[in-house]
Amino acid sequence: MNDNNNHITQLIESITTMVEKAEYDSALSAYASVFKQYPEFLSPKDEEPLTKFRATHIHNAANLSRRALYNACHHIGSTSRIKQAVNMLCGVERKVYQHEAQKPSFLFIPDLPSSPFSETSEVEGLQDLVDKLSSSKEVFLSCIKYANDNYVHEIGEVPKSDDWKKLSENWSSMHLMKGGHFTEHAKRLPHDLISLFNSPLLAHCPTHAPEVVISVLKPKAYIPPHYGTSNIKWTLHIPLVVNDNAYLDVAGEKRTWSAKTEALLFDDSFVHSAENPADAARAVLIIDIWNPHLTEVEKQDIQMLMREYANWSAHFGALAVLDKRFY
């Protein structure tokens, strides 16, 4: 233990010197090394008392991490709304939402038109994609038996409530595309079907999107209200197994399923919930598509932003929230 303490002391002394010399990039890399080797030093338990010395280094590590994100991304943005979105993501500008019911948890593009529900006809070429995917419904139905992953863990941070704990047992999934990359499940599908997911309509911006997933909501299951991660994409639901009682509620607007429902298209950055009160499971194919009001240049900006963010997150992302206990 003493050897560890001595090593930490040496590392921290060298970091202090780097900070004094304004060698911030080197200091951040050194903090990342400390966090990897001795995570308890920079991430103590909430109830653990802290010295001013230790708290200072926790603040330093978090601030340098956030600084690195801004340095990597601040140049991105061909339009004012993308520039503003980057500033909000990097924390240099406060997030201001346009609708009370629309509060995406990760990335928000201001002044980007949307509504809780939209028609597929509003997106050029989308109805054709829906028709082609629907014609292969039997293939997707055959995949339902493999939908055994816990989908609650895939939608981001959710409250630790009894409703969400119960839902983790009643909401399952099987990904065909995750974070913009095809899964092993997808590779077993017919090639012409897989090629449909390369459509430019899909929100191709790894590692953020797109997601293509078969979602199964068990009988009597309820998904509490929650927000999606961003408003750059809309969510397409193509029915596989549905019933007249299951519904989707987006910002207080409720849509129910029926045998005649071809698809539902909504913006999951608005608060939304779902329920399947029937005695049989409800299964849908979920696909992320671009918000059609984004320009092609803005989509390229977002793709670049996601690449930079993913690289930053892999190296320094965990450090950015180290000082959350002081908020």
Rank of each mutant, 00 (worst) to 15 (best):
V213C: 14
A259N: 14
A251Q: 11
L248D: 05
K220E: 12
K254F: 10
I232G: 00
P190D: 10
T261Y: 09
G228K: 02
N243Q: 05
A259I: 12
K254N: 07
L189P: 13
L265F: 10
I223T: 05
P210N: 02
S199F: 07
T229N: 04
P239F: 06
I214M: 09
Y247V: 06
V216G: 03
Y222E: 06
T229S: 11
A209W: 01
T235R: 15
L248C: 10
W234F: 15
C205G: 01
E253N: 13
P190S: 13
D268K: 07
E262N: 15
S195L: 14
H191D: 14
E275W: 00
A221H: 08
C205D: 00
F197P: 11
D279R: 02
A221D: 04
T261M: 14
P190R: 11
N243K: 05
L240H: 06
H208S: 12
P225I: 01
A246T: 13
T207N: 04
L248R: 08
I223R: 04
A203N: 08
A203P: 06
P277C: 00
L217E: 01
D268W: 07
D192T: 08
F266S: 06
I214R: 05
K218H: 14
I214S: 07
A278W: 04
Y227N: 12
H226C: 10
S199C: 08
A203I: 02
